[in-house]
């Protein structure tokens, strides 16, 4: 019985794991640069820009991601401007794309917070030194600020990655069948609630372990020679 259940459930969950991975990978690959850009804007001198980035982060950190997904997927479809724009509709009209977008927007706000504190903690002397050397603003960022900030932010960002993997489960509320979606279906199908829960959580824990150890490795590689 027990083994039958495992051999029955695992193939479904593997299919779901592919979707979870897809959402998470896109969430990291696009959410990280988005978050870093937001952090740079928030620490910039332009008042209007930094204020609006502040508000963006406060809103996305202050509301549940479930609401954000529902606004994007169910809410925006109500506006005819959006339905008639093929590019936006391609993103918002499809549940998988909407889920990925929600993850990117959400993680961007949290990532911005992480990188903002990292950027603010940089020693002033280094930045003044690079300005004294005549480095442009971009070169200062590229060669001085960013490399240091990444090292600062990495430990906090690795827990954000684990959160992305977990948050991707909310995609199941808008009919995307990822791990949690399949788990729910399997639970109501087989009635072996506890068993399915254990198998599913093994999937999530495995993903967490893999992502956390790979980030640890990156962290170690970056801090080499420091």
């Amino acid at each position: 019985m027990e083994l039958d259940l495992v051999t029955y459930a695992v193939p479904f969950l593997l299919v779901g794991a592919k979707t979870t991975l897809l959402i998470s990978v896109f969430g990291i690959a696009l959410g990280l640069p988005f978050g870093i850009a937001l952090a740079v804007i928030r620490t910039s001198k332009n008042r209007i820009l930094s204020r609006s980035a502040d508000i963006y982060c406060a809103v996305f950190r202050g509301t549940p991601m479930l609401v954000q997904i529902f606004v994007l997927y169910y809410g925006l479809g109500q506006l005819s401007i959006i339905r008639n724009n093929p590019v936006i509709w391609w993103i918002v009209g499809d549940s998988l794309h909407a889920a990925i977008l929600a993850v990117i927007l959400n993680t961007g706000a949290y990532t911005a917070e992480i990188f903002r504190t990292a950027l603010l903690s940089l020693p002033r002397g280094l930045i003044e030194a690079s300005q004294a050397c005549g480095l442009s603003v971009w070169a200062t960022f590229r060669h001085v600020k960013f490399p240091l900030a990444v090292r600062q932010a990495l430990p906090a960002y690795s827990s954000e990655v684990a959160i992305i993997v977990k948050e991707s489960s909310l995609a199941s509320t808008i009919t995307v069948l990822e791990i949690t979606g399949y788990a729910k279906r399997l639970m109501s199908e087989t009635f072996a609630i506890m068993d399915i829960f254990i198998i599913t959580s093994a999937f999530y824990l495995m993903m967490n372990v893999i992502s956390l150890t790979s980030l640890k490795l990156i962290e170690r590689k970056l801090s080499f020679g420091k």
């Binding site: 684990a162 977990k166 948050e167 489960s169 909310l170 199941s172 509320t173 949690t180 788990a183 729910k184 639970m187 109501s188 609630i193 506890m194 829960f197 599913t200 959580s201 999530y204 824990l205 967490n208």
Partner: peptide, 19 residues
């Protein structure tokens, strides 16, 4: 604590509710 912090909240809710 590792288990609950590692899996999505949705899954915990499904377990408790359906279970």
């Amino acid at each position: 604590s590792i288990l609950v912090r590692g899996v999505p909240g949705l899954l915990v809710i499904y377990l408790l509710f359906f279970g």
